[in-house]
Each structure stands twice: as C-alpha cells, then as structure tokens.
Design a protein around this nucleic acid. Sequence first.
DNA 1: CAGAAACCCACATACGTATTCAGACATTCA
DNA 2: TGAATGTCTGAATACGTATGTGGGTTTCTG
Lengths: 341, 341
Amino acid sequence: MSRKPTSFDIAQLAGVSQPTVSRALSGSPTVSEQTRKRIEAIAQQLNYTVDKNASSLRKRETNTLALLFYEDPTPDQTGINPFFLSMLGSVVRTCSLRRYDLLISMQHMASNWHVEFEESRKADGIILLGHGDFEPYRAKLDQLMEQGTHFVRWGHVNERSLGTVIGCDNFRGGYDATQHLIAHGSRRIAFLGHANEHYPEFFDRYRGYCEAQRSAGIKVVHARQADAIITEQSGHDAVNALMAGGVKFDAIFAASDMIAIGAMRALSEHGLDVPNDIAIVGFDDLPAASMTRPPLTTIQQDFSKAGEMLVDALIRQIRNEDANTAALPARLIVRKSCGAH
Amino acid sequence: MSRKPTSFDIAQLAGVSQPTVSRALSGSPTVSEQTRKRIEAIAQQLNYTVDKNASSLRKRETNTLALLFYEDPTPDQTGINPFFLSMLGSVVRTCSLRRYDLLISMQHMASNWHVEFEESRKADGIILLGHGDFEPYRAKLDQLMEQGTHFVRWGHVNERSLGTVIGCDNFRGGYDATQHLIAHGSRRIAFLGHANEHYPEFFDRYRGYCEAQRSAGIKVVHARQADAIITEQSGHDAVNALMAGGVKFDAIFAASDMIAIGAMRALSEHGLDVPNDIAIVGFDDLPAASMTRPPLTTIQQDFSKAGEMLVDALIRQIRNEDANTAALPARLIVRKSCGAH
DNA sequence: CAGAAACCCACATACGTATTCAGACATTCA
DNA sequence: TGAATGTCTGAATACGTATGTGGGTTTCTG
C-alpha cells in the first residue's frame, strides 16, 4: 500500500467503523478501553496520522498560529530586525509546548496580510511583530478588529491600545538607564533614537530619559537628542550628526542596542573611549550587547517571557477567554560601557 | 451575514454554479471572460478567500513548506543557533516570493518530527537546519527517504550525502582562512572547533586548515586544536584550555564566529591584543562579526543565497524535478582581527 | 442546411475527518 | 418478565473546494 492510510483503513483492520477510530484516537470516553487499545495499536503500526487539513476543515480550527513580521516604512535591508529575531526563539518554543504549529510570514504594509491568515483558515490567530504606529498600519488593525480576527501584538502599551498588546515598560527602562548614568556622574546625556509619537516605544524611553533628568534637577537639552531607527548604521550616523552640530555630551542613552553599537563605532572613529570619555547605555539586551568591547550596559527586555506571553495571550483570545494587555518589567543590566564598577 | 463566505455564496450571487466560481478564480480558461469578471468583482466585494484547508484537502497539496530546527545533542540553551537564525530571514523571504507559506518548528532528536509534517499533510516538504551527524539523526533521514518525504537540508556536502543537501565549501573556506593568516606572518596557528567526523562541516574546515599549512611547508601540530561547539562560551573555554596546556600560538582560526568572539574575550582577559599579539579569523560572517572590536576577519557564507537555494531545491523536489546537492563558495572577508591592512 | 467543432457551464463526486442521532445490546430494577 | 437505564458503536452527513464528464448553445464548414 503506497497510499497514506486513512481512518477508514484503520477501521477496516480493527473491524470497527471510521467514526469509532476518530473517537478512539481523540480520546473520547464513549469508546471502550479495549477497542481503543486495538485501534491505537493498528494506527501506530501503520504510521497513521490524522490529516490536518481534513481535521481542520471539519473542526473549523487549525491549531496553528501565524507570526507576522511587518516591515517598517523604512525597512532594514539586511533582513529581520534582530530584536524580533531574538523573540522568535521563545515564540517557537512556546508554541511547541502548547502544541500549536507556527506559520511565519514577512509582509509589507501594502499587502493583504490582514486577510490572508485567519480568513483563509490557515491559522486561528496572528502574532504581530513590527515597529511604528503609522496610519496604514492602524487602518489594518482596525480591520482586523472588525473582522473579529484573533491577534496580539508586541508594542507600545497604553490605555488606548487597539486590541491585546504585550510590551515592556519603556518609560521605566528609559528612566532607569538615564538615572544610572546620572548616578555615575554624567550630566550631559545624549539620547539617540526618534522621539515622537510615530515611534511610541522610543518615545516612552525618551520620556523616561527626560523625567530622570528632571528628577535629578538636570535641565533637558533638546539638542542632545538625535534621530535614529533600529540599525547599527543609524546609530553611527546619529553620533556623527551630534558631533557635526557641535553638541557636547558626556554620556549616551541609546534607544536600542543596535543604535548603541553603531554609536560606539562612531565614537571609536573619533578617538573617544567608552566609558572613560563617553559612558553609554543601550536598550533591549540583544545577544550582541554582551559581545561588544566594552560589553554594553543595557536595559533588558525579557524575550523569553515576552514570547511566552504573546503566545499565551493569543491562545486565550482564541478560546474566548480574557487576554489582557500587559507590560513586562525592564531591568538594568550593568556591564562595562557605563563606567560603573 | 456573519459566516465566512464560501464559493457557493459567490456562485449564488453571480448566478452560476460553485464549480464555475472555483474555475474562474483559479484562472481556468474554460470560463468566459465576462463571467470571470463578474465573479471576481463579487468575490472581492465579499472579501472572499479560498479556504486553504478545503483546497489542500482536495488538491492534496498544501503550498506550505516546513522549516525544522533540530537541536544538537549538546543544545545551546539560549535558543536558536545564531547561524541558522541568520538563514531564516532569507528562507522566509524566498518562500514569500515563491508564494509558499512557511511553517516553523524546533524539535529534539527524540520527537517524531519526521512523521509530523508531510505525513499529516500540513506541508509539502521540509527544510532541515541543524548540526551534527549522529546516529539517531541519520536514522531519521533514512526514514524520511523511505517515506518519500520531500526534504532538503543545510549541511556537509559530499558524494555520499543522503538526499539533497545545500552547504558551503568548508574545506576551501578553511584553506583560505589559514592561508591568509600564513600570508600575514603567522606560523603557529591554533584551530578552535571539533575536528572529527561527527561534526562534518567543522571537520572539513579543519582539513582545509591542515592542507593550507602543508602547502606552505608548515608542520601541523595537533596540540594546537581545541574542541569547541558553536557557542561563545565554548570559544572562550577553548582558548583557556590551550593556554592552560601551555600551547603556544600566534594566530587562531576559529571554526565559527561565535567561537572566535568567545576566544577574543578570553584573549582579552589574558591581556593579549588582537591582532598584534594574536591574529584571528572566524567563519560564517554572522552579523555580530562586523560589530566586534576589532571587527572580525572571517569566511562569509552567503545566507541570502543559501536560503534561496534551500527553498528552490525543495520546491523542485516537490515538483519532481531534479534538485541537486550543491556547495556555495566561501569568501574571505578581511577586517581588522587578522592584522592585514 | 446538416454536421462538426468550439465554447461555456452545471452535475456529480471525492478529498478525510468529526459529530449528531439513533440503534443494538447488556444490565439493572420493579 | 417487561421496562428502564446505561454503554458502546454504526449510519448518515457536513465541512468547502476542485475536477472529470457530459449537455446545451453558438459558430464554423462543406
């Protein structure tokens, strides 16, 4: 027999009907222990597996989640954002533990991903990973809500968030990072990263940065902020922009580790030493952060926990249970780049 | 209407039969241009999408590929191997271009992944990403072959390879890296990485390392090889092991960038300067390689091309076309860690 | 103008599973 | 002993799509 065995084949061999096979293998209590054993033995021997397409079609659920990386309006050419890549591992792992399959896709804003997945019944819900808060994106979220599609996203957490959001306490992270720099003597701290509402997560970090300075009685100097997105090159350019503008600073709080790494490269090119000339603190705690020289002090986002929460929130939503928006704590990881001992 | 629209709904509205809708939307030439337009308009208006489960069930193909990370017998605790993570981006992208969906999973050797995917008809084929060449793994590959499952894997390319394999020219990479170090004056070059047939890719790099020395009339000293797997810690430990053993060396060829990065950390702890005291060359060209201080000279594996080739080879196999095993070229990327100008 | 060809479409059915409903049989109780 | 209860299983059917087959109309050809 070259054909893949079906529940009918098992049924015939076991001398029962197809429905009984289905019931036996799905653990229904209405089938006697004896016949169940017999059916299971035969199924195992034939290497039988349930056809997931037929099963999904009938049950109207796929036991599959979709993970969607949506690109920035200013996309990073090199591939998937390292931050989300770090989260991927724990999402994959959690899905596996929860016995869900995981479908992955990467799409532009322009595409119809909001229709593709749940609508075409390939997944029961969607996890959205992306940056930014732009109109076309919000419109898609609205449509997802309206369709009743199950989805969760990683992002900026606030009261008005659309749908279920898991994020981290960006304000607190920014506050702690900045306070740490202040505690170790820095007074003129630059901020590298966009600081406007189109980048809500960066903006929260920026607000934390401002607040920490105010609390310490330090005046916030707007010129010390330089725009940067989450790429190494962007961090490099931001430092150059500040220096070209004649801005003086003795420390940097970078809104992401990638930016910090680029900044360190630029500082090195200018002959400046980290942390002696310039102290620096990053954000994210990417794997790369511990491998720089000097190792980067940073704010840790707990990727492992984040992936788990995203998956679990989505599953709860699928089951029509409450799935609450939540912010994870941000934790300062002290290494060498900040000059603390 | 709250229900998801079906082809019957479209048919009714268009005044045709369901099969006509199916044919119209799949571009069959047997339906007139006029009715096709009408059907398409209605479908669009209702936000109709084909139910992929029903479609797959009927067509007996899913238009989905599965990507499987299988873990090492000595798994990296921190998540997915950064090397494979780098490949993921291009696999995702290529799948998207080829209009295939991508299912991702991460499994232990012990699980039944070899049955799960194609057998349960969730995917048409499997891409395997993992390291090593151990018995339980080979047994699974045998079984996949026997089942007639479509699969390709990234790995060690040789004549006896089981199934379709895409890999890189590890021997040549090892040769070039070592030759480069020799050309810049190194004579006592250490090799960090396992050097036995259980790690066939590392072993090829090691053989290239040996051959380059022989070609240059340098005697290969076995004591200069230290075992290491693909983790930063492992590279760190390997250097310490060499130094604890009193082995002298003026350069390092690391079998992977992660190992090289760990080695640089260890060297730094011993007060040794890279490249002045010890020159070092890595392998892979991970994103992290360009961010170290000094930036790491390494052998580049073209991830982008690799992912593309894996996907395309698998698709060819699914279509019963020839899918040949192939090795990608390895290219030396000169940065600072080798001391070349 | 008869017959062939071309064109378009509807009917019937299969893909493999899960579930509803009802029936068979055994067991218990009055 | 007959009815009631309970336990297990089978028959029928639905999920939504894709495709082989055949029928009806129109157009072309000799």
